[in-house]
């Protein structure tokens, strides 16, 4: 197996309308790396994350996650390895209590009930959602919903965590708590964000997308200090 956990080889994606979302994307992410994916609106960040976990399949090129090619027949395996935290937790939280929400993924994975119980307890402690256990998810605050969404993904024991705009609509305190939580993870993380401060704090490496093309891949501090590049990519 490759020591690269996520590999994109000349990946392209076109929407059914024919509009190009991503073109000729290639990069590699190794085990335990935390990588930020930045870019202006419509740059293709969410599409790239959806490709990583098989919600969308590439129209050209190959994606390999943990040695498994992302294709229709491998989707269950890909979803076992890759967890995704969506931008809007309301789209993710579907069960009637926080506990059931967190158990949803592991049960779908076919884990035995006692292991599910153990995982639910563990991630509720890890994400400080234990006090929300019996609350309905749609009644929580934005920060609490985000924590539950993260917990529901952690309970699936993924090797890779994808996060789409993790700081979106969070107040400063909830944002800080979320960052502390992500910092405590040992997973391979790819997070897309407009929040450059968050990218700088959490991710040593950054991928910069612009109009569907990968225009830069390097150290976060270096990329963010390149004002000309940031302006050209509509991030300043």
């Amino acid at each position: 197996m490759s020591h690269h956990y996520i590999e994109f080889n000349n990946v392209g994606y076109r929407y059914p309308s024919g509009q190009v979302a991503l073109e000729n994307i290639s990069f590699r992410i190794t085990h335990g790396e935390r990588v930020a994916l930045i870019g202006a609106n419509g740059a293709g960040k969410s599409t790239l994350l959806n490709l990583c976990c098989g919600i969308l399949l590439p129209t050209t090129g190959d994606i390999v996650v943990g040695g498994v090619r992302v294709e229709n027949k491998q989707l269950q395996e890909i979803r076992r390895q890759v967890g995704i935290v969506f931008q809007n937790p309301d789209d993710q939280l579907i069960m009637s209590s926080v506990e059931e929400e967190i158990a949803f993924g592991p049960l779908n994975m076919g884990y035995p009930p006692d292991k599910v119980e153990q995982l639910v307890e563990q991630v509720m402690h890890q994400t400080s959602t234990i006090r929300l256990r019996n609350r309905p998810p749609y009644n929580l605050s934005g920060g609490e919903k985000k924590s539950v969404a993260i917990a529901s993904v952690l309970a699936m024991e993924p090797s890779v965590i994808l996060m789409d705009e993790p700081s979106a609509s969070l107040d400063p305190r909830a944002r800080r708590l979320m960052m502390e939580l992500v910092e405590s993870f040992g997973h391979t993380i790819l997070l897309s964000s407009h929040d450059l401060g968050l990218a700088e704090r959490l991710c040593p490496r950054t991928l910069l997308l612009h109009h569907g093309y990968l225009v830069a891949d390097g150290a976060t501090t270096e990329l963010l200090s390149d004002k000309e590049l940031m302006e050209r990519c509509e991030l300043l």
């Binding site: 979803r79 969506f86 809007n88 789209d91 993710q92 779908n108």
Partner: peptide, 10 residues
């Protein structure tokens, strides 16, 4: 989007 999120969790 909800269905996509459900698929992503197996």
């Amino acid at each position: 989007r909800i269905y996509g999120a459900m698929l992503a969790r197996g």
